Simulated scan of single mutants.
Amino acid sequence: MGIIGSTIKPFKATAFQAGKDFFDVTDEDVKGNWAVFFFYPADFTFVCPTELEDLAEQYDALKGMGVEVYSVSTDTHFSHKAWHDTSEKISKISFPMLGDQLHTISNNFGVLREEMGLADRATFLVDPDGVIQVMEITCEGVGRNAKELVRKIKAAQYVRENPGQVCPAKWEEGSDTLAPSLDLVGKI
């Protein structure tokens, strides 16, 4: 499935966000800004709260980079609120939590495990044009690292802002980049 470079598909979902009423989010709301769609299998589980807490700890940095975060599971927005209100880790979240009980978003991104009705553990970075630039999918038992996500976002933003440049492995902001050319073939 060639999802990198594809445009996100239409969706509408109800979100829970701390300090706000429930509200709808659509694909049109996402365009014009960088966005992370952070899929996880289910509320009230085990690895998921550790990942979401880790992501919550990076949320201010991400907002400073012009990135909005949307966590997504096939639970309802009501379940997200109940989890937020009862879990020490989840209570730290201030980004929107999308309810995808109709499985529209999970299907759109190709991460729905239909036999279970749950989303895979998956992350997608969407650019301001609505184009998917980065994706990561892990098995259910392997949690993600939000600091590595921040690094990948910085690299994707750099590449967008600097056409003709690419970021090598382990690239960190301020490090050298590469300008692909025939002169580099076989010399790296």
Rank of each mutant, 00 (worst) to 15 (best):
T123N: 06
P96N: 07
T177Q: 02
N107E: 15
D129C: 00
G32Q: 09
F11M: 13
I105F: 08
G64N: 09
K20D: 09
D100I: 05
H103K: 14
Y70V: 13
K170S: 03
T177F: 05
D176C: 05
V159P: 00
E28S: 13
V67D: 00
V72L: 04
T138G: 00
S87A: 03
S79C: 00
Y59S: 05
A35R: 10
R113L: 15
P168I: 12
V72K: 11
L102P: 07
S73R: 11
A18Y: 00
V150K: 04
V134D: 00
T123K: 08
D100P: 08
C48R: 10
E115I: 04
S106M: 12
D75V: 04
L182D: 02
L125V: 15
V150Y: 02
L98G: 06
D75E: 05
P180W: 07
A119M: 12
A13G: 14
P128W: 07
I4H: 01
I188Q: 01
E28Y: 06
Y158R: 07
S106L: 12
L178G: 05
L178E: 07
F124M: 08
F37I: 12
D176K: 08
V67Q: 01
I153G: 06
A122G: 10
I188C: 00
V47C: 02
V131E: 14
P96H: 06
D127R: 09
K20M: 06
E28I: 05
Q101E: 09
S106A: 14
N145C: 15
G99I: 09
I3T: 12
M135Y: 05
F11E: 10
K152L: 03
T104H: 01
D176R: 00
D60T: 15
L184A: 06
Y40M: 06
G186C: 02
T86D: 03
K81H: 01
G174R: 10
T86M: 02
Q17V: 05
A35L: 02
V69C: 07
P128S: 03
V69F: 03
T104Q: 14
P180L: 08
T74N: 12
F124R: 11
P41T: 13
N145R: 14
D27R: 07
V142M: 10
T7G: 12
I132T: 10
E68Y: 05
F46V: 07
I8C: 11
L62I: 01
V25A: 13
A179S: 15
A122M: 14
E68T: 14
F39R: 03
L182V: 03
A13D: 05
A42L: 15
R144H: 07
C139K: 13
N108E: 08
R144N: 09
M116H: 11
V69H: 03
K9R: 14
P41F: 05
N145T: 11
I8M: 08
E51R: 12
H103A: 12
E68R: 03
Y59T: 15
L118F: 11
D24V: 02
V134G: 00
R160W: 01
T74I: 06
T104G: 06
N145P: 10
T14N: 13
T76F: 06
R151E: 01
E88N: 02
E51H: 10
V36C: 01
W171S: 03
Q101M: 12
E161K: 11
L52F: 09
V159R: 01
L125K: 07
Y59H: 12
L55F: 10
